[in-house]
């Protein structure tokens, strides 16, 4: 994004409170009472910390690696989803299907060579998602309705493309994505890289700051002359790139791609963003918070599994966690505007 737009609105940006800061502090004073998010964090994190450190094998290097590895796929997608939520587009419900199509495209183009296959997969993910962003940004399409429709269309295309049967690669060059470096899968490094990139984009670029402004008040942003459509498309395009990276790693990990490969990626990514404290209404949040959300969910699943609880219990706890954080964020937001 050029600096032309940014310089025009530099005054507004300068006076805008830090969008990643959870609690407004009018006049620079510290809040007298802890906010609902702080209370919720303490209530959730303290028992979790106690539970974790008293769990056998939790404090091991292998377990730390497992937590990071299991957070990677969902985390990469969630980082992209953060930008979409910040820009005020709520959520996309077409993530699993898009990741599946990208995975299929990545595997089916292996005969072109690894790098061309990666590029084609990235372009596929970015285009499929940016088109939806254009409909939201330029024509005010409802993102929920739009992405439900897009999910059906993309899923149907995947079924048509594959005939419902698994897609296999022509070569096994993709196995490079399953390698480890210093004991960690490459997907973990991808998660960290994507997080740094998103953080830089949101905090250090004009486009990133405009995403917060558009998300906070779309009408005002448009009235102020901000390029609402362009900023929205950029957020969705970044999201599409993240979905594509996830699709590439998913395809490599499973060595084949079926229509159901994306699994519960859509809802898992949304959960990670919400647990990170990003406001679903837009205008607030950060990539680092989402990374924290993804890791928190992974830690909770890990602790429950180490303690012998079933997968069903893990899903139940994840649902309750999302509910608590969403309520806390809502309370914080409503109090903040009073």
């Amino acid at each position: 994004m050029t600096s032309a737009d940014g310089s025009r609105h530099s005054a507004a940006l300068a006076t805008h409170p830090d969008p990643a800061d959870p609690t407004p502090t009018p006049g620079g004073r510290l809040p007298r009472r802890p906010g609902p998010l702080t209370v919720a964090s303490v209530v959730l994190l303290l028992p979790l910390a106690v539970l974790a450190v008293t769990t056998d094998r939790f404090l091991t290097l292998d377990n730390a690696r497992a937590i990071l590895a299991s957070a990677a796929f969902v985390g990469i997608t969630a980082i992209g989803a953060t930008l979409v939520m910040i820009v005020g587009s709520a959520v996309s419900l077409a993530v699993s299907q898009t990741a599946t199509v990208v995975a299929m495209v990545f595997l089916v183009t292996q005969h072109l060579g690894l790098l061309p296959a990666v590029l084609v997969a990235l372009v596929c993910g970015v285009v499929l998602t940016a088109v939806q962003g254009a409909a939201v940004g330029y024509w005010d399409a409802n993102p929920i309705v739009l992405t439900i429709a897009a999910g059906f269309a993309v899923g149907a295309a995947a079924t048509w493309f594959s005939g419902g049967t698994p897609v296999y690669p022509a070569s096994d060059a993709f196995v490079v994505f399953n390698r480890t470096l210093l004991g960690l899968p490459l997907s973990v490094y991808a998660l960290l890289a994507v997080t740094v990139l998103a953080h830089w984009l949101l905090r250090r670029t004009t486009a990133g700051r405009q995403m917060y402004l558009v998300g906070e008040n779309r009408a005002a942003a448009r009235a102020a002359g901000l390029p609402v459509g362009r900023v929205t498309v950029l957020a969705w395009a970044f999201f599409g790139g993240c979905i594509a990276v996830t699709g590439i790693f998913l395809a490599s990990f499973n060595t084949a791609a079926t229509v159901t490969l994306g699994g519960t990626l859509t809802l898992d990514a949304i959960a990670a963003v919400l647990v990170g404290g990003t406001a679903i209404a837009g205008g607030r949040g950060s990539a680092l918070q989402t990374l924290g959300g993804a890791l928190l969910i992974s830690v909770i699943s890990d602790v429950l599994l180490l303690r012998g609880y079933s997968t069903g219990m893990q899903i139940l706890v994840k649902g309750l966690l999302v509910l608590v954080v969403v309520i806390a964020v809502h309370l914080r937001t409503t109090r903040g505007w009073r």
Partner: peptide, 9 residues
């Protein structure tokens, strides 16, 4: 994901 966690466990 579960396999990763079980191997660590």
């Amino acid at each position: 994901t579960i396999a990763q966690q079980l191997f660590a466990k």
